[in-house]
Amino acid sequence: MFNNGKELLKLCKEQNKKIYEIVILKECSSSNISGEELKNEMKKILNIMISSSSSGLNKKINSISGLTGGYAKKVEEYKNAGKTICGDTIISAMARALSTSEVNASMGQIVAAPTAGASGILPGAIITVKEKFNLKEEDMINGLFTAAGIGEIIAKNATISGAYGGCQAECGTASAMAGAGIVEMLGGTPQQCLNAASFSLINVMGLVCDPIAGLVEFPCIIRNASGVINALLSADLSLSGVDCIVPFDEVVDAMYKVGRELPTSLKETALGGLAATPTGEELKRRLL
């Protein structure tokens, strides 16, 4: 029904529908599952996201390797002390993203969105926006469908794998999905959803995947924190009316080309970037 952003926008315009409505229609026709069942499935996903993004806020969660842990709780306490630079909304989003990433690193239950390594970004964004604007569960569900549609386009035309495209393909895609999802939740137009997705990808284009010791922990967890803020600022940029000069499909294509041009050492091999620092090498020796 749609293969890219241009076709998605055309469908929205012709049928006078929102992105999430088109995404649901497409999924119903390709999977033979009713819209009601799809929404129930999405509700299940949302509930796991709510749980993973909150459980690290009040208790310290340690990773199985012992390398990282407790960041979400620290950030939440820092926020509650009332002296943050960025303000409550951004710090809340960050704490939630960290929480899911920590649950992931501790062998807890998460939803890959689009991957486990980038799983903190989407829940952090949609839950924070829901709280701030006192929205309904249904709004979050709609935002998730829109986010899924964006992720589908990127997966189809580029890549969502760090091993093929670097972190820009994982955390970048997660931010693009989240940016579009929250613009949807706040009543933005389909074009504004795509603009937010484009801005998110543009902001991290070229970002490398360089996990210490090859583990989904550091810097992954930190990049989930910045990824959620990337989504929030991209959504704000878009909703303020700033237009993205380069169309979404071309941005996706550019991201893909950059990903292919990145050297292998910077694509999840733990051979470059932070993983190849003296400290990274030392930790690798100690952990593996």
Binding site: E27, L38, I45, M107, I110, A155
Partner: peptide, 24 residues
């Protein structure tokens, strides 16, 4: 081009930390 469903993108529901090293 490979076809994706929305739950290929939002999912799987899994135990972390890695879809390939843990869920797979």
């Amino acid at each position: 081009m490979k076809e994706y469903g929305i739950f290929d993108i939002l999912g799987p529901i899994m135990i972390g930390p890695s879809s390939s090293h843990t869920a797979g």
